[in-house]
Design a protein around this nucleic acid. Structure first.
Length: 290
DNA sequence: AAGGGATGCAACCGCGGCAAG
DNA sequence: ACTTGCCGCGGTTGCATCCCT
């Protein structure tokens, strides 16, 4: 429908952020809070488009961002989540405290997809490839997120990321919805889980969303060693579910049997490889999202 | 030692969802 | 019902650095 660009690019800075720009943005947000990205640049004196400001804050400046190597456990979770949800990086990132969707996306594209391929698994479908692909990637030391923000240098043609059999997983797009969440730092054990049944979780119409189930899986799979956060998605009135203000934490008591059932169900789906079950897996993931 | 390809990550781009008018 | 603007997401690109020949 011919929407206007997010901002007039005339006179705006692009490319790497300078420390002074970072400081301006950080100071402004600390003082006024996040949001209103469109008007933020003008108010803060930044010569950047609002979108760029948001990205910089979300992916780099936010104080809760965890920088550094992604641990094997995080790798494991990313792979599992990706097998369920596909390229829903923001959803996956939501379960990895301190990690951004951009970081996870990059990590997947540069490390995990290659690793899976080298292990004989198709990274997009998570199904076994006919034969394992030789791992030709070179190891490289010390590129640990310490990206310089300095100067420029011309660039020569970049090999596109292996286009090899680009099967897209057409899972439903994530939808935005209200959520309540607890930080993962709180121990999973002390967090609460709503008492919804697995069928409720799977019921597309029920309004509860992915993260309940995914966190449940995570809590089980990782045996709480990460301290799981728990998120709740509140259904709408049409489905007779509670709205945010009506939720009482006291009522959200975890029920071990519910968790076990969910875990069983999840394992069942995960442990199967044939086509029929792949379909089931997809619809399972779908049901979590719709 | 140097040049060029490979790698990793920050940043950009375009699109879709949603809410307000 | 339609338009407009904002926000957030996923895909893609740009570029500094690493590593191999």
């Amino acid at each position: 429908m011919g929407r206007a660009p997010c901002c007039s690019k005339v006179g705006l800075h692009r490319g790497p952020w300078t420390p002074s720009e970072d400081a301006l943005l950080t100071n402004y947000i600390q003082e006024h809070g996040e949001g209103h990205w469109r008007s933020l640049p003008k108010k803060s004196g930044l010569l950047r488009c609002g979108k760029s400001c948001r990205l910089r804050w979300m992916n780099y400046l936010r104080p809760d961002i965890k920088r550094g190597n992604i641990t094997p456990d995080e790798d494991d979770l990313i792979i599992r989540m990706h097998s369920l949800l596909g390229n829903r990086w923001s959803l996956i990132a939501g379960r990895l405290p301190g990690r951004t969707d951009n970081e996870i996306k990059n990590h997947w594209n540069t490390h995990l997809s290659k690793r899976l391929r080298s292990q004989g698994t198709d990274p997009s479908t998570h199904k076994k490839l006919p034969q394992p692909v030789k791992h030709e990637a070179r190891r490289r030391k010390g590129s640990n997120g310490t990206k310089n923000t300095s100067g420029k240098k011309q660039r020569k043609g970049r090999a596109k990321p292996v286009p090899a059999e680009k099967h897209k997983v057409h899972l439903p797009k994530a939808v935005r919805f209200a959520s309540l969440s607890l930080p993962r730092n709180d121990s999973f054990g002390s967090s609460t889980v709503t008492s919804l049944s697995p069928s409720q979780v799977r019921d597309p119409g029920c309004g509860f969303r992915t993260e309940v189930a995914v966190d449940v899986f995570w809590g089980n799979l990782k045996d709480s060693d990460h301290g799981g956060g728990v998120s709740f998605f509140v259904g709408d009135a049409d489905h007779g579910l509670v709205n945010g203000p009506d939720l009482e934490w006291q009522s959200l008591v975890p029920t071990t049997s519910t968790l076990e059932k969910l875990y069983e169900e999840y394992l069942q789906v995960l442990n199967t490889n044939d086509h029929h079950d792949q379909v089931e897996l997809n619809s399972f993931a779908e049901s979590l999202l719709v």
